[in-house]
């Protein structure tokens, strides 16, 4: 469970977030909403550990009730408008790197089934073909494959559907469903609501819940 208590964030004297408290429970999708500039992406990057909160606490509670020392071991972040992939490396090398950093199985047998889900398991795509020459949708699918492979219980998804076609959205829904069934936590920011409609989603509106003003 991800516990956020009276979270506040100031950037260059501007208050972006203040007094924000919420829990994200296992098996739940939390949809962060709010108008442009209400701090959705900022909140996601704070939860991911890129920015330091100016006030309040963020705790990741393990199933036994204790607090994780480093929540980054349990959280996988998908940034908006970027895929965080090394352009000069091929798809397999990219995934292997990120898996090794988490100490996960990086064998072909572990990676290829997931690549297949995302329609990237073709010898010409998989290897010897640098990611920088991928199309927008392919890069996004590779980033989502990394998310699926990370096996982390908590996902932070900032506009995950950007650049996906109908087939990709379908795969995304299947993956999300699997994550929910295995009691995963999902926190999502998305302007595209339709693909989320078939899930039970809890909404958190930053304009009403996230600011003192």
């Amino acid at each position: 469970m991800l516990e956020i208590k009276s979270l506040g964030f100031k950037y260059q004297y501007k208050t972006i977030l203040s007094g924000l408290s919420f829990d994200a429970k296992p098996g739940e999708i939390l949809h962060i909403t709010g108008p442009n500039g209400s701090g959705k992406t900022t909140l996601m990057s704070i939860l991911a550990g890129l920015r330091k909160e100016s006030a309040g606490t963020i705790h990741y509670r393990l199933p036994d009730g204790t607090t994780a020392l480093d929540r980054r071991s349990f959280v996988e972040y998908l940034p908006a408008e970027a895929n965080a992939l090394f352009g000069k490396m091929d798809a397999m090398s990219n995934l292997r790197l990120w898996l090794r950093l988490r100490g996960l199985d990086d064998s072909d047998n572990a990676i290829r089934p997931i690549l297949k889900n995302w329609e990237l398991d073709h010898p010409l795509i998989r290897e010897n073909f640098s990611v920088e020459s991928f199309s927008t949708g392919m890069k996004r699918r590779l980033a989502l494959a990394r998310l699926e492979l990370s096996k982390t219980p908590c996902w932070l998804l900032d506009e995950p559907l950007y650049g996906l076609d109908a087939k990709g959205i379908d795969t995304f829904q299947t993956m999300l469903n699997g994550h929910l069934l295995s009691q995963g936590i999902t926190i999502i920011v998305s302007h595209d609501i339709a693909p989320l409609e078939r899930f039970r989603v809890r909404k958190l509106d930053l304009l009403h819940d996230g600011r003192a003003s």
Binding site: G49, R72, V75, P79, A82, F86, G87, W98, L101
Partner: peptide
């Protein structure tokens, strides 16, 4: 420089490295 492309550097910071 290679880490600065596509926000890889930030992604590395979100990993328990």
């Amino acid at each position: 420089e290679p880490d600065m492309q596509d926000r890889v550097f930030d992604q590395l910071r979100t990993y328990p490295i």
